[in-house]
Design a protein around this nucleic acid. Structure first.
Length: 350
DNA sequence: TAGGCCATCTGGTCCT
DNA sequence: AGGACCAGATGGCCTA
């Protein structure tokens, strides 16, 4: 059965539309087209009985028989009830066309706004990457799961490092997205990373060793540096909850008075130790300008800019997966839950 | 090549 | 009347 491109069931135009549908040769569409061209094209490609067929030279004649219904083989359709259709004068045609072009432009703008909003949402998702964008539907699903999971963290005190947290995050997500999220959440020592670094660059010098060390201990529950787009205060509108700021950050102290931590300094990245990092040509590098990006973080804070030089760049391969994780993923944004979890105690103590 | 994703156009509906 | 919003249709691009 032929699909009915336009109109609603019972609509006269639907019948007319499906009967009169003419597939045009699209070969003339090659090349870039301006919105005006697209509008013009679509205004002229519809079937001849719709008011969209405004470019027809025979319009004047058609107006004469405007009430004659279109049909196959000159078949007469039953007389239409209701108000008589107004004549499509040239002026009306022009007005219609202008209105349609304007409406199309508005619709484009509206959709761009919607997409911008989605982009903003992507940027506060656990795994933000400029090069590997989540699809719209996956962004919305992950957002829902993220809210859900964080709520659960607050309610049950469950760790953001727990299997349950990851499970909640990945619920209903596609396999690639789940892999991405899981990859971002992978925590633990990085023997593999260290050995890979060793392979690539020979014996680690002091700087590289420090970086590798920083990369290798994304300790759960540690006080975390600030995460621009992911500031905890944006996530939780809780009384007395203040997102930690990096300037105040120290290994042993939290800005909000959470118990001191004696362990190693929280690295800016929560990169899985399981990632096997592969070198990419400079041209392939695609660091985000996102303020939470590790490169931005490192260069603008405690690590000297030159210390980035020894870091593997490009992409990270998620073991057992076909999917690569571009290094512009803001893993650190995912550390926000650490902030959250570190705050839970103090919130409950209030 | 099929399927997923996306941008765009379109007509209908509701609201101002 | 015109704008915002919506959902359906369509074609292009990309990837497995």
């Amino acid at each position: 059965m032929m699909t009915k491109p336009f109109g609603k069931p019972g609509d006269v135009t639907e019948l007319v539309s499906s009967l009169g549908w003419i597939e045009e040769d699209l070969s003339s569409q090659d090349g870039e087209q301006t919105p005006e061209m697209l509008d013009h094209y679509s205004l002229n490609r519809r079937n001849s009985c719709l008011p969209m067929d405004l470019g027809s030279e025979d319009m004047e004649e058609e107006e004469e028989e405007e009430d004659g219904e279109c049909g196959l083989d000159g078949e007469k359709a039953p007389k239409r009830r209701g108000p008589k259709k107004k004549k499509m004068t040239k002026a009306r045609i022009e007005r219609f066309r202008a209105r349609r072009v304007k409406a199309n432009a508005r619709e484009r703008t509206r959709m761009h706004g919607l997409n911008d909003a989605l982009d903003n949402l992507r940027q506060v998702m656990p795994c933000y990457s400029k090069t590997q964008k989540l699809s719209k539907i996956e962004t919305l699903r992950l957002a829902r799961n993220y809210i859900w999971a964080l709520s659960d963290v607050l309610e049950s005190g469950q760790s953001t490092e727990s299997h349950g947290f990851l499970e909640m995050l990945c619920k209903g997500l596609s396999q690639p997205t789940s892999n991405l999220v899981a990859g971002c959440l992978q925590l633990g020592p990085t023997a593999m990373l260290l050995s890979k670094l060793d392979e690539k660059s020979g014996p680690l010098d002091a700087v590289n060793a420090q970086q590798a060390h920083a990369l290798s201990f994304p300790s759960p529950g540690l006080p975390s540096p600030p995460y621009g787009s992911m500031e905890a205060s944006h996530l939780l509108h809780l009384k007395g909850f203040k997102g930690a700021t990096y300037e105040n950050h120290s290994p042993n102290e939290c800005s909000n008075g959470t118990p001191p931590y004696d362990g190693p300094l929280t690295p800016p990245l929560s990169i899985s130790g399981n990632f096997a990092l592969k070198q990419e040509p400079d041209a392939e590098r695609n660091f985000t300008s996102h303020p939470t990006h590790p490169a931005h973080y490192l260069s603008s804070h405690q690590y000297p800019a030159s210390s980035m030089s020894g870091l593997p760049q490009g992409h990270a391969l998620f073991p057992g997966s076909r999917y690569e994780l571009p290094l512009d993923i803001t893993f650190d944004s995912f550390a926000a839950p650490h902030i959250v979890s570190s705050q839970i105690g103090s919130i409950y103590n209030e």
